[in-house]
Every structure is written in structure tokens, then in C-alpha cells.
Computed example of a mutant assay.
Amino acid sequence: MLPDAAAAGPAALPQFAELRAPADWRRIDLLSDLHLSPDTPATFEALARHLGETAAEAVFLLGDIFEVWVGDDARHDPFEAQCVALLRTASRRLQLFFMAGNRDFLVGPDMLADCGMQGLADPTVLNAFGQRWLLTHGDALCLEDTAYQAFRAQVRSPAWQAALLAKPLAERREIGRQMRAASQAQQADQELWADLDAEACRQWLRAAGCAAMIHGHTHRPREHDLGDGLKRHVLSDWDFEAEPPRGDLLRLRRAGLRRIALA
């Protein structure tokens, strides 16, 4: 499984992994929450188009790239194999980084290797263009949702994951379908959506020596001023099946961070 520094407990400060951008990088694209599945062909095509055209040297996929992931042995099935082929092709012209989200935390080393992606711990400090940027999927900081935090701690445990992965693939797919249905039912009630805890964000940023955090998960793209010069930048989800379609990314350059609408 991918390392997850925050899994030990949402209230505790995690260890912060670090990644230094090579000196020749000029543009870095950051995106999340594509929720790719066989039901989202337009979103898949939007990703394929962007990976084929972007001028960025690196693309960071910050979680929930897949609507559900039930184990790396699923990567040989038709839709998953299509995703592998797309990412492997993209990895030949740019560097791909993957951080697990709450839907695809079971992406493991076999999938990463086949796609040519490098796994990132959550959280990771990206040192680029003379600044330190704190990258996270974001779900570990939604502290008001205590039921989710208990669930998150359970499913991120090695014992739970080992027990799930020991089940036949068909059974895991059914479990994933049930979990997805429960999540969609909760999302239908917007009042149940917890945002990131502002004080916890400030604590993480100060501990990591960063002034800005970039995350996804909430599907609420905007910039938040946390005070004392601290900010958090929220990535958009992607849904090119919707009317109107939506999807954007954040592009990091030496000149700063810019939101780019793709839909």
C-alpha cells in the first residue's frame, strides 16, 4: 500500500515527506478528484487530452483519481487496463506522481509500476521554485466528520487491507460498490460535508514550514486565507459528463500558482 503519514490519528501531527523539484522543471500541474470509472468516458477523454497536451514537466494526481480501487489485480480488467495504458503513455513524456485519496487508497506498487507513477505519502512537502508547498488529499483534516475519521482509521490499517485483499476480486468489487453507494448517499446531503479544520491546517503548515497547502477532496475549489500569511488552495473535482462540464487544475510556476479551467 502507499505510505500514509496521517493514518495514525487525525488529531496528531503527521510526519511530512519531502520532494524537491528538479531544477529544470518550469511547470507543475496539480489535480485531483477525477473519480474515473466506466461511467465517465468524457472525463477520461479530458484527462487523456490534458496529459497529451500539457507543457508541464510533472503532473501530481492528489487522490480520488479513480472512483473506486479494490486492489491492483483489478488493473487487468478492461477499463482499468485503459487507465494503465493512458498513464503509462503519459509517463514517457512527463513525470507522474500519485497520492492516495479516500476512494483509491488501495492503489499499490504493482499499479504504480505499470503506470510509471511515483507514489507520494500524504502529506508531502513539495519544494519547488524557492517555496515549500504542502500537498495532501485533504480528508485527514476533515475533523468534524468524526464518523468518517473512525472509518478512515479502520480502512487504512494494514490488517483491514490485508483481510480485504484476501477476498476474491468479484467480492471486493461488490464491497466497493456498496461503499461507493453509501458515500454518494452522504454527499447528497450537503450539510453532512465537513470542510477541512482551519486550525488543524494552520498547525500542519507551521509544522511543515510551509505557507500554502494544496488539496482536493471537498470538491469546493477556492482559495482560503488562514491568517498570518497562511493559505490553502482547493482543487476542483472533474465531471465532464455534467452539464455544464466542470474541471480545472492548479499550475505551479516560479511566478506563482494559477488556476486553469479545462471544462
Rank of each mutant, 00 (worst) to 15 (best):
R88I: 02
A100L: 09
A163G: 01
R258N: 12
T40E: 13
G63Y: 04
M99K: 03
F98V: 07
G227M: 11
L96M: 13
A140D: 12
Q184H: 01
Q190H: 12
L235C: 12
D114R: 11
L205P: 02
L36N: 04
A170V: 08
A211S: 14
H217V: 02
A6L: 10
L87H: 03
E223N: 13
D29I: 01
A166Q: 14
P78W: 12
Q82I: 00
D189P: 02
R253F: 02
H137Y: 01
A90P: 07
H76Y: 08
I260D: 14
L13Y: 13
L30W: 14
I28R: 07
M1I: 12
W193F: 11
A58F: 05
E243I: 10
D72C: 08
L249P: 05
Q178I: 00
L196I: 14
M111A: 15
H35I: 04
G101L: 07
E144Y: 06
F97E: 09
L230I: 08
P158S: 12
P22L: 13
H35A: 05
E53M: 05
W69P: 00
A81N: 14
Q203I: 03
A12Y: 04
R246S: 11
A212P: 00
A212E: 14
H76F: 06
H50N: 03
A128V: 11
G108C: 02
Q178P: 00
F60K: 01
L47A: 01
L249W: 09
Q82W: 01
W133T: 14
E53Q: 14
Q131I: 11
A17R: 09
A128F: 04
R27W: 13
R88M: 03
H233N: 10
L250D: 12
A200W: 04
F240T: 03
E57F: 04
H137V: 06
D4C: 12
E243V: 11
L106N: 00
D77G: 06
A166P: 03
V155E: 05
V234W: 04
T54W: 02
L51Q: 11
L235A: 07
C115A: 13
V68Q: 06
G108K: 09
L192A: 09
F44E: 06
L226Y: 07
R253N: 10
E174I: 05
F16T: 11
T218C: 00
D4K: 02
T43I: 09
V70N: 10
A182C: 03
L96F: 04
R251H: 02
L249S: 09
T124D: 10
A121P: 08
Q149C: 08
T40K: 15
L30K: 10
Q178D: 05
